[in-house]
């Protein structure tokens, strides 16, 4: 088990390294660079430019040097100092801009994840056991709709319904009166009252997906002979289901722990933009539009690393819950 984890960890290192290179190439793709354009804009508007400052940046990030040197400087800063560089757009270090926002995005992703699991697992089991029942058809239909409706379209429709029929303006993280206040219980409650919507919107797509997976694997397992054997033992139907087919069918769901979180994390981006939340998504969007390269690069690297980490956790979880993987047996997988 330990060697499995170590081996898996070692495989992750070159992966993350490649991701960082890719991220760097992607943010360098647009012609021109932010600094030059920024300076041009400042000059046109007649603002004074601190030449020393410009030179300091140019030197620090090797902006006058070839690509690979720039990359090395960038990645060295990240690895050794945890510094993702400077955001020209925000006029402050990238770390300062993103830390809080990523935190909020993460909270939203985590809550969506909790909602998703706690809905999908019981519903998936239920519809598999009652295959072809009314509930099965209902959730299958709902599942298809959930799959076909991306979060941001759902967000648009909900915004319309809430505004037109209930006069509520959804969106944002806080009501205006709390926006600038320091943290308090009231502010926290206000935050929650805004959070449930993005959480719900995000969770719906994932839940639809998970119900389908849970139902399919559960149906596969229900057909296996050991279910009948367990019944023949005299176990109650509930115990049979829980200890036998569910115990196996839940493995692929448990292993979604790793990537589902990250999926919500990145999939939530467009939803966050539509709902105008002050979180990671909109910042990435803006930085991409404005070629704020270190900001964009930081996001891509962080999300890529999180995803790699997520699939690592998934694999380890799967090995823990499924002895067949632990012992390297392919039987019945």
């Amino acid at each position: 088990m330990l060697s499995y984890i170590i081996g898996r960890l070692l495989r992750m290192i070159p992966q993350v390294f490649l991701i960082s290179i890719l991220a760097f190439i992607i943010v360098q793709l647009p012609p021109g660079d932010y600094l030059t354009e920024h300076l041009n804009r400042l000059r046109q508007s007649g603002a004074s430019i601190d030449q020393a400052e410009v030179e300091r940046f140019t030197k620090m990030y090797g902006l006058d040097q070839p690509m690979h040197i720039q990359y090395l400087k960038w990645i060295t800063n990240i690895v050794t100092r945890g510094s993702f560089g400077y955001s020209f757009e925000w006029q402050k270090p990238v770390n300062e801009v993103i830390v809080g926002r990523i935190g909020t995005t993460f909270v939203i992703a985590f809550l969506s994840f909790v909602v998703c699991w706690s809905l999908a697992i019981p519903i998936g089991i239920y519809v598999a056991v009652r295959q072809y029942s009314l509930a099965d058809y209902f959730f299958t239909f709902l599942g298809f709709i959930g799959l076909a409706t991306p979060g941001f379209l759902l967000a648009l429709v909900i915004m319309y319904v809430a505004y037109t029929y209930f006069g509520i303006r959804v969106g944002g993280l806080f009501s205006p009166e709390f926006e600038t206040q320091p943290w308090s219980w009231a502010k926290f409650v206000d935050l929650l009252s805004h959070l449930w919507l993005p959480v719900l919107i995000l969770a719906i797509g994932g839940t639809a997906n998970l119900i389908r997976t849970m139902r399919a694997t559960m149906l596969d397992e229900l057909r296996k002979q050991y279910v009948m054997v367990a019944r023949a033992k005299g176990l109650s139907e509930f115990a049979v289901l829980l200890r036998y087919p569910v115990r196996i069918a839940i493995n692929p769901i448990l292993s979604t722990f790793g990537w589902l979180l990250v999926w919500f994390f990145s999939g939530g981006m467009v939803v966050e933009i539509v709902l105008n939340l002050n979180t990671a998504g909109p910042v990435l969007w803006r930085s991409l539009m404005r070629q704020d390269m270190y900001m964009a690069g930081a996001y891509i690297v962080i999300i890529g690393t999180l995803t790699a980490l997520g699939s690592l956790i998934s694999d380890i979880l799967l090995a823990i819950v499924d002895p067949r993987i632990r012992f390297g047996s392919m039987e019945g997988l």
Binding site: K224, Q225, Y226, M228, V229, A230, R231, A232, K233, G234, L235, S236, R243, Y244, R247, I248, N251, V321, D322, P323, R324, E331, G332
Partner: peptide, 22 residues
């Protein structure tokens, strides 16, 4: 259920799948 597995029990055809693998 008191009878199953206690008074009358059953052995099935496929030993490979008669027990849960996990």
């Amino acid at each position: 259920r008191d009878i199953r597995g206690n008074q009358i029990s059953m052995v099935f055809q496929e030993p490979m799948t008669a027990m849960s693998p996990v």
